[in-house]
Design a protein around this nucleic acid. Sequence first.
DNA 1: GATGAATGAGTCTTCATTCAT
DNA 2: AATGAATGAAGACTCATTCAT
Lengths: 213, 213, 213, 213
Amino acid sequence: MPKISEQQRQARRDQILAAVWPCFLRKGVHATSMEDIIRESGLSAGAVYLYFKGKDELILTAISTYLGQLRGLLLPVLTREEALAPLPFVHEVASAIAKHTKRAGIDLNAVILMGWSEAQTNGAVKALVTEFQTKYRDALTAVVRQWQRRKHVRAEADAEAIAKALLSFFLGSIVQEALLGDADPATLTRGIEGLLGTSVPKGPPGGKGRRRR
Amino acid sequence: MPKISEQQRQARRDQILAAVWPCFLRKGVHATSMEDIIRESGLSAGAVYLYFKGKDELILTAISTYLGQLRGLLLPVLTREEALAPLPFVHEVASAIAKHTKRAGIDLNAVILMGWSEAQTNGAVKALVTEFQTKYRDALTAVVRQWQRRKHVRAEADAEAIAKALLSFFLGSIVQEALLGDADPATLTRGIEGLLGTSVPKGPPGGKGRRRR
Amino acid sequence: MPKISEQQRQARRDQILAAVWPCFLRKGVHATSMEDIIRESGLSAGAVYLYFKGKDELILTAISTYLGQLRGLLLPVLTREEALAPLPFVHEVASAIAKHTKRAGIDLNAVILMGWSEAQTNGAVKALVTEFQTKYRDALTAVVRQWQRRKHVRAEADAEAIAKALLSFFLGSIVQEALLGDADPATLTRGIEGLLGTSVPKGPPGGKGRRRR
Amino acid sequence: MPKISEQQRQARRDQILAAVWPCFLRKGVHATSMEDIIRESGLSAGAVYLYFKGKDELILTAISTYLGQLRGLLLPVLTREEALAPLPFVHEVASAIAKHTKRAGIDLNAVILMGWSEAQTNGAVKALVTEFQTKYRDALTAVVRQWQRRKHVRAEADAEAIAKALLSFFLGSIVQEALLGDADPATLTRGIEGLLGTSVPKGPPGGKGRRRR
DNA sequence: GATGAATGAGTCTTCATTCAT
DNA sequence: AATGAATGAAGACTCATTCAT
């Protein structure tokens, strides 16, 4: 039984997936019809359904695939033996997405935005995305802890809170780049550099359980 | 020649718009059918089309309305005669959205995410959103300049880059809250506080056009 | 809210149902497409789905409706105060279906055959059909008991077994009429009349492989 | 020029046909997809089409094959040199189908019902089925004539009408067994036995062309 | 002969929108 | 102004059949 080889099978799936994002970016995830994807992929309707159960699986796989690529981009930076110092680190992380976008010819920022939106109403996608962000944030926490050990950051600071703040910067840059197109890594880095020089004259507003000390 | 007063007309539009976000949040913008909205609004199909041209106008107006509410929330904080100091400011801005969400019973974070995604493929929405973010960022720049005058931030820092970074931070916090649900204003402020204490040992890696002057 | 009146609603349903059997008889239940029914009904696709959930409901209702008509035809004969004598009874029952077929212009025999076949793989239809046949047979049993009281049939005979045999005659006539077209009520009655004159030389077979000699 | 022997060819056809009825009985003739049959047969799509032109031929052959088996079951009983007496005859015929069903593990009653339904809209199947029933009825007529010669049945009775009635009975028993499952040969025979003892007090109502001479 | 991936016409169903009342 | 039944063009998906290997 000379079934198609696993390799060929994956090639077909890739061929179809390669057609998905151009469509999604052009018309939006839900406004894209299967016919759009089918035409773009160059295959027949039946063939697409031979490799994917239906539109839902296609959406899920498309998002999952891109999250995987993103992971591949960020992993080296996040898990370096010795973490970069804060500003180089920010620059490096912010650059990863920009580079990939340029390389693949797909606006990864827009892809990510659509993924987040999809996650709001699609449980499977939400699981994917939250798991990714959680891991991402955990890695950031580890980096912050290194910074603390290396005295870049005060030892008594809340590493997790800092990781959350850092993640916000990165996620927000994606939004800003997708919508305004002028939030390049260098600018973000410079902005954060400016912020880091900020003096903290008074304690922050006494929120509920805010103050620690 | 309107047969009803402008006031009544607006009341009807509001009634319909009030039905839109619950639907969008439940099923997503495009998976929501007109019938969903019609049922939720308690009006008839015909009535809805009497007040809105079609689904597109409904989407646009729904997003526009929420941007308006957001503007109302942020304006007082952003345009205070004398801007808050950095940490209180961060806390105040981050709180604005959380408060509104609690008050209106609508997850504003999710609404905003959907709006961004919609903006990717809908020109009218994109115009709305970019205009909003641009104004928001300009206001942030003004605040940063105040900080510089008050020596919270170094005078030679790039105020616009800092505003972009700040905007990223706020936008990213929306994402984080929508997806992970654990990015409350207090934690975020604490994270920023921790970051502000960061020392910048070396200049960041001299990327492409990094340093302006 | 001037919804359509229940009467109008039923009229529409009838209009659609009236289109169903001509289609089913022409092409078969499953080879009939919704488009066939839609075209035959003179309505639009949407309208048909406004009155029936889908094809399954249409099939079920179509069969149910015809069973109802059949019930209406048979009830008067089966539940007469004083049952007809055997031969007139057979003739009357067998005529009921023939008459209806002529009146409605729909070959009820074929309809019934399709219903039976559908029942083999469609639980809801099976429930409908078996319930009908069971009731039908119970009524026959009651008639046979009357015959026993009136000495047409021996008192010690098994009334239920006789009812089963009678039902077989009637059901089989439907088949024969649908396929060969020459099993009219008069002929069936004459055939049974001939059988009734049969002498039973030996006792009937007792158990399974029962006596023969 | 067949590349394989006729014997091998027939073996392959049998292998495929063996897969057909299990599928048909499970899902219905038309709801069964070629893929269902292909999977059940253990062959490839191409192979099935090598031995059968298409689904239509498969349906026709499947029905034809089962009619052939039925013929094989009934022939010995119907064409005995000396026909059985009425009650043993009824029992024997009714048993034939039940036995086969048990032996082959396929519910022959259901198969037959589906065949009849298919015949309503498929000319080739109709030809097959009517030819079968006609022959069957002719054989029954011959049996009835033997009964007349042996005085089981009155000589002046209409042998053909009696054969039609008998055929109805047998066909109807198939229906009853398929749908209610409680029409076993013994019960049916007992029912007929009870009927044969029926007295015919008056002539049946002089319907249209009832009595011939 | 045998395989099973590929095809694409056709299926059921939904849904934004209209319009007679 | 208001209603909601009706429309019909898409939409997602299936499946009998073919053909390159």
